[in-house]
Amino acid sequence: MAPEKKKLRVATASLAGCFGCHMSLLDLDERILELLKHIEFDRSPITDIKTCGPCDLGILEGGVCNAENVHVLREFRKQCKTLVAMGACAVNGGLPAQRNHLDVRDCLQDVYLVGVGVSRGFIPNDPELPLPLDRVHPLHDVVKIDYFLPGCPPSADAIWQFLTDLLAGRTPHLGHGLIHYD
């Protein structure tokens, strides 16, 4: 990559994900140092910027499981010229979507409500707690997504290929070995 004059501004966040995709991003290892010559971070778990400003690229990990996720997803769509769904959860809901065949109220009751012989268990409920959605959704159920990067997680090599293609102005193309749906 030839150094660019203006750095690409990139925001990242994890919605209903496990941070494994962000770990894969850090698995670029020394290549992170190279990448930082070409990009700068806006809102991201590794910075203390709390809201997403205008960005060239947004990368989201995780699906959408509650009202807060919807809010952050819309914020990213509004602020980012290009928005990427990174990893299995963002692409199709992933493992958390296993709860989709269950009633969310039953799940909550199972965990917090007490069984036989106890009268005062309760489900946490507070204005500070975003309401869970009845189902876990992939990102493209809510907003338009420009690129999908599959894998659980996508490998560091896949992320590298994707980002270097974008930085060079090419349409990202993941060849054999980089596309996987584990």
Partner: peptide, 14 residues
């Protein structure tokens, strides 16, 4: 002052 954990996923259940 409160630290809130704001998501519920319920792995144990599914």
């Amino acid at each position: 002052v409160r630290l809130h954990i704001v998501e519920f996923r319920g792995f144990e259940r599914f």
